[in-house]
Design a protein around this nucleic acid. Sequence first.
DNA 1: CATGAATGAGAGTTCATTCAT
DNA 2: GATGAATGAACTCTCATTCAT
Lengths: 220, 220, 220, 220
Amino acid sequence: MTTENDTENGQSGRLAPKSKRGMRTRNALIAAAQTVFERDGFLEARITDISKEAHVASGSFYTYFDSKEEIFAAVVEQMQEEMLHPHVRERTGVSDPRILIEAANREYLQSYRRNARLMAVFEQVAQIDDEFRALRRDRSNAFVERNARMIKRLQEQGLADPDLDPNVTALALSSMVSKTAYSVFVLDAQAPFDQVLSTVNQIWINALQLKPEADKGQQV
Amino acid sequence: MTTENDTENGQSGRLAPKSKRGMRTRNALIAAAQTVFERDGFLEARITDISKEAHVASGSFYTYFDSKEEIFAAVVEQMQEEMLHPHVRERTGVSDPRILIEAANREYLQSYRRNARLMAVFEQVAQIDDEFRALRRDRSNAFVERNARMIKRLQEQGLADPDLDPNVTALALSSMVSKTAYSVFVLDAQAPFDQVLSTVNQIWINALQLKPEADKGQQV
Amino acid sequence: MTTENDTENGQSGRLAPKSKRGMRTRNALIAAAQTVFERDGFLEARITDISKEAHVASGSFYTYFDSKEEIFAAVVEQMQEEMLHPHVRERTGVSDPRILIEAANREYLQSYRRNARLMAVFEQVAQIDDEFRALRRDRSNAFVERNARMIKRLQEQGLADPDLDPNVTALALSSMVSKTAYSVFVLDAQAPFDQVLSTVNQIWINALQLKPEADKGQQV
Amino acid sequence: MTTENDTENGQSGRLAPKSKRGMRTRNALIAAAQTVFERDGFLEARITDISKEAHVASGSFYTYFDSKEEIFAAVVEQMQEEMLHPHVRERTGVSDPRILIEAANREYLQSYRRNARLMAVFEQVAQIDDEFRALRRDRSNAFVERNARMIKRLQEQGLADPDLDPNVTALALSSMVSKTAYSVFVLDAQAPFDQVLSTVNQIWINALQLKPEADKGQQV
DNA sequence: CATGAATGAGAGTTCATTCAT
DNA sequence: GATGAATGAACTCTCATTCAT
């Protein structure tokens, strides 16, 4: 019924398994890879270790993946799916920008916290491998651009400080959130989750000089 | 107080050279290392390449340094000195927080831009090596703590939004500046320097809700 | 006398298939092997590729053959049969040595040209594998010995240069034909077929100093 | 004094050694490679074995050569030099074509016999590797073309059979000599050296129908 | 001090062959 | 018989580090 995996599976450079057994092995490898990457980091992770962790022979790795980079991509893809799933995504009917901002920040920080170990490795890999660097950049850009559009809209409605350049502001505020998340969840800067969230929210709101009255009976 | 002595030089695990020739070789190696690191990144840089770039035999490297990490530390130290030199450091007598903030941000961004290539490598190494990760954390902490103290002071003077937690706010705003710098100067997010600077400044000021009257009749 | 039986088929180390399906699969594998060998050479040809080309699972290969060498033997055997088929083989009643020589050379060169790709691979394998080296040697010897007998006969009849050693001459002239064929049909030395044939014939005749009168009143 | 090896040594993909010790090691590797190639053939020869035979660490191989192909080229080059050295090469003043042919064949067969083992491996490699195949072709061509020119000259002087195409004849006769040499010295077809030589000579002479009187007081 | 060749541990990768389904 | 995933031995190649000259 599903058309997934008919012949190729996403970015996998090797053929997708045709049998259930093959699928099981492939999944075992991905799970093992996540474990090993989180434990050892990308560079220290040896393909042998991943195979060992998955309880398969070393050669079996190459049945499904061409390289460490490729299996890492599969791990990251899985994380991606997890991060976007049931949680708020499209909040139709909500017009108060404060609520939107708060929800977006909460979601981002929660996702980051849940996947902190892997996000740390992803940062590492993005520093090493051009393809992952590009991937990170694209995601970041999507995020920044969405925020820039929101800021522009608020400025046009007279709700946000008109002196701010929307693009650079979006870049700066997005940078603030992501790097703060990195500091707290990866580097373990000690700070309670709720305080981080509320501070980040407040800074957004203050930075844009959002008018408190503005959101009454508003429409976006 | 200083731990320097005549046989050890800072973090160098090998002897400090006494002769002029030795000093020349050591400096050539550091300069070569910077070139190679900026060109190839830390991981790709081979000790052989650094020696070649410095026009010395590969074995000579070990006369002065024990490892790639160690020579990288020397390169970073040199950059550190450059970054702190003549530029404003302690601006005594200036009480207008806006001016302080502006100056600090300008200085930071300028330094970052000047050393962007090396900062990129430093970020890479901090993702790989625990010692450099700790170094980065310490510097970042110093920065954040100084800002936290300033924010607390302003709050006590009734000049800044009292609802913000000074520590988390300092972390968030510092994160904003450093990651924005990384995006613009390393990842080449397109944005004019002055606009980045003024946006970052404005966000600081807005975020803290700095009262405009505070700076009346000030003099630098 | 023959060692063939109903469970073994010539050199095949595995069972001869009894079912139609089995026969079909076996033939498909041999045909696929020929394609792959001609395309990739013996060394580069992987058993996986042969199976893929035959549209059977990789494991099915081992139902019929034990190794790459073995399937190559089957391919060569097939070629052998083709090379000996309808074409002249025993020309009874023909006594003119010129005509015999011409016919033999024409046949040899035509066969070589028809199977040039496979002959090239056969040469390759004979350089690698002792069994095929022996096979090549045996065939070559049969050829040389037949020619040696013919030369001896002609010398006894006073038709050929008596100073030549019949065995070494046969070796040399046979070598000439086979290597020229290799040069022209495998290495693509540019020369028209008919010219190669007539030159080779003429050299044979000249070399043996065949008396022209000898063939008067001959019968084909 | 000699300008050899100033920086690069012929086809070597790695740098030429600057010290005597390096030169010694390089030569030891080439000698070891020859031993191993002659013993095991090209395919079976492992780089590890060559290093072991040369009494150096496996990694040292890569100080001087990039691959098995490259060291084989060095071995072949050495053989080449040996094959061309003091022996007759340019026989000025000799005008009798019979003497020229005899001398050339003797030289060729002697060289072949001296280096039979390596020639066998060279044939093997030429069947496997395109670069060596091209090398063999070029050498062969040079040989054939020289013979073709000689044949043409003899035909113009009315000394050789004018019906023969000089190029194809040269190809065929050269093929005869080289393949006979291969059969005798590599495949050990039993035949005394002198008989091989005289037979090959006689076939050349007969094939061209060289006039016996023609060489009296001739000038080429 | 400088030199640069020698070392060797260790990771990646291939593919013929087996075997449970 | 057919399937195709699993196996693992075997080899290549790199490069930080040492050390005799």
